[in-house]
């Protein structure tokens, strides 16, 4: 007995050649966000289709809230999201404003040098002695 008997019996049933399309307006798409720890950001996890908010939350919890430990799940009707258009809307400026990129602050090297500086270490040792 491989497959369950019920399934075997089910296989003999006559099915419609095509899956029926969901009735119009039956299910709506929702976007799902999960939060892994309190205070951390909610991260987009995926989407579910559901009839209403309550069902969407139930589905989201079962789909995205169980394969990792998380503390909260959000669902947002996709229709509630206001978004820019890929083709029509300008999001990023076209003129050169590279000075606005949050990069180029290469302080890591300087910081490591600073922290490994013997004089600083000794100074700090002395400082601690003096004040405590």
């Amino acid at each position: 007995m491989g497959l369950s008997r019920i399934r075997q019996a089910g296989g003999e049933r006559q099915y419609e050649p095509e899956l029926p399309a969901a009735a119009a307006g039956d299910l709506k798409p929702y976007e799902v966000f999960v939060q892994l720890e309190r205070g951390k950001p909610h991260v987009h996890a995926g989407s579910v289709d559901a009839a209403d908010d309550e069902m969407a939350l139930l589905f989201a919890r079962e789909h995205y809230g169980r394969d990792q430990s998380c503390v909260q799940v959000w669902v947002v009707p996709r229709a509630a999201i206001v978004r820019t258009d890929y083709d029509k809307d300008l999001v990023f400026r076209l003129s050169d404003q590279s000075y606005r990129f949050a990069k180029g602050y290469n302080v890591g090297e300087k910081w490591r040098k600073f922290m490994s500086d013997r004089e600083y270490t000794e100074y700090r040792r002395g400082d601690i002695k003096e004040h405590f």
Binding site: A22, L58, F59, E62, H63, R66
Partner: peptide, 14 residues
């Protein structure tokens, strides 16, 4: 085999 995909996963998970 559940009626919709979402429910299939939810029902199996429950």
């Amino acid at each position: 085999l559940a009626p919709i995909l979402e429910e299939d996963i939810a029902f199996s998970s429950l």
